[in-house]
Amino acid sequence: MADTLAHTRSVPELIAKLFRDLTDLFRKEGELVRAELSEKVTQLQVGVGKIAAGGITLLVALIVLADALVVAVAELIGTVEVSDNNTGWAALIVGGVFAAIGAFLVRSGTTDLHVDNLTPDRTAQQMRRDGELAKEQLR
């Protein structure tokens, strides 16, 4: 059927249709680029948020660990009595947990911000395929 339609159209009509189709293709590719870049900006914002949350969590961990160190050193030199409910060890454990969570968040955030994760790969691949298809159609 396409062959029948092609034979009934004139060359100027076919060229006009080709330009309309190409214009449509480039417009849709532009929309695809915008959509994927919007996705990448959201990923960037999430990554920055993770790094900020990780930094705050690490700051809390540093405060707790510093408190634990003060209590542990005080117990070591004997100025604080050792009791059954030893708060130094509890603070050390809590600080360690906060440090692990903070380190995870910072690492995860920096991974999200890696340049390879922010390039619009799907759009570039689709544009390559469209270019190859257009070349084949012109032959």
Rank of each mutant, 00 (worst) to 15 (best):
K50M: 11
T57P: 03
D112Q: 07
D121H: 11
V70Q: 13
L14W: 01
A100D: 04
G131E: 02
N117P: 03
K28T: 11
I15E: 07
E36S: 10
I51P: 00
R122D: 01
G78L: 03
F19T: 06
Q137N: 11
V11I: 10
V97H: 08
L118C: 12
R107D: 07
K40M: 14
N117E: 08
R34N: 11
K17L: 13
R20E: 09
A103I: 05
T8P: 01
V71Q: 11
L118G: 07
A2C: 09
L14N: 04
G55H: 01
I101S: 04
G78Q: 04
T57S: 12
N85K: 08
G96M: 11
Q43F: 05
E36W: 02
R9S: 08
D116Y: 13
T119P: 01
T111G: 00
Q126I: 03
Q43S: 14
L92C: 06
V48E: 05
L22H: 01
V115W: 14
A99P: 02
D130P: 01
S108H: 05
D112A: 15
Q137P: 00
A90D: 06
L62K: 09
V94M: 14
V46N: 04
D116L: 15
P12V: 05
T23M: 05
A74I: 01
A90W: 15
A74L: 06
D3E: 15
T8F: 11
G30I: 08
L133E: 14
R27H: 11
K28E: 13
L65W: 15
A68G: 10
V60H: 13
L32D: 12
D121P: 00
D3S: 14
A66M: 08
G47H: 00
L44N: 02
I56E: 03
G54D: 04
V73N: 10
K28Y: 04
Q125K: 04
T42I: 14
T119C: 13
I15R: 04
S108Y: 08
A124Y: 05
